[in-house]
């Protein structure tokens, strides 16, 4: 999903105010400066003022991030703080714990149902290499070591210490009651670092990382139960889909909710 909103506003309201005030102060300072500093100060001041006024930031646009949608965005401006994101979801699949464990243990299978993984490979026993889709066709890569591998019960993994992304995860398999298959519980934890890498990772995780895991697990269930993942992309639609500049309320709701 592209975090860049359609109207181009990608700076949040409080940040716009701060931007505008700071810009104003800088411009004022610039007018009183007689040194070489005057010009750059004025330039920065004017651009900040413009950013505050319009709510559009070219740098954010380039990074593919935004602070314009309130607090639930992971992509905080500037990525000023280290944060940890933990998500957890459970899904029941009509298959035995052994079957589901067997599928997951082949880490190569994960991209079959996850939205943002391009590949996962177990290069040597217990060591996996992950490649994920980042913003603007950027690839994020990291290594993770399998820490726990109890057949038919639980697998856990964590990134190596020198990995650019600190992440760990676990998946456990439990027989569901009344012969309903297997309850799969996934717990993922990401340490989102300050700076550009953190922003990129935050973007991969999306607005609500829990929702993405939820969607991924639904696809896993589809794949294991039916052998395919239900899709409607690539279906025909009328010209209105592409040519109608305006969106109905319905479309707007959808665009907020569907990735």
């Amino acid at each position: 999903m592209d975090l860049q909103p359609k109207n181009g506003v990608n700076v949040g309201n409080s940040e716009r105010l701060a931007s505008g005030v700071l810009g104003g102060v800088l411009v004022l300072m610039a007018t009183r400066q007689r040194s070489w500093l005057a010009q750059p100060l004025a330039l920065i001041g004017v651009s900040l003022l413009g950013r505050g006024f319009s709510g559009k930031c070219a740098v954010y646009k380039q990074l593919g991030v935004s602070s314009a949608h309130g607090g639930h965005h992971l992509a905080l401006p500037g990525g000023m703080f280290n944060r940890t994101v933990k998500v957890q979801k459970t899904v029941t699949v009509k298959a035995s714990p052994a079957e589901v464990y067997g599928f997951w243990r082949q880490f190569e299978n994960l991209p079959r149902f996850t939205q943002n993984l391009i590949s996962v490979a177990e290069k040597q026993p217990g060591m996996t290499h992950w490649v994920a889709r980042g913003p603007n066709d950027l690839h994020l890569e990291w290594e993770a070591r399998i820490h726990e591998d109890t057949p038919n019960e639980r697998i856990s993994w964590a990134t190596t210490e020198d990995s650019p992304i600190q992440h760990n995860g676990s998946v456990s398999f439990r027989e569901a009651p009344a012969g309903r298959g297997t309850e799969i519980k996934v717990v993922l934890r990401y340490d989102i670092p300050a700076g550009v890498m953190g922003q990129a990772l935050a973007k991969v995780l999306g607005d609500e990382p829990g929702q993405q895991l939820d969607a991924d697990l639904r696809r896993l269930k589809m794949y294991l139960e039916t052998g395919e993942v239900a899709r409607t992309d690539g279906q025909p639609a009328g010209a209105g889909r592409d040519t109608t500049g305006q969106m109905s309320t319905n479309d707007a709701i959808l665009d907020l909710s569907i990735k």
Binding site: E228, V229, A230, R231, T232, D233, G234, Q235, P236, A237, G238, A239, G240, T244, S248
Partner: peptide
């Protein structure tokens, strides 16, 4: 095709394909 409230039109669209 649906084009808005009380606005449906018969249009020429691509043929459907096998997807799955």
């Amino acid at each position: 095709c649906w084009n808005g409230i009380k606005d449906v039109r018969v249009e020429t669209v691509p043929d459907p394909k096998i997807i799955n």
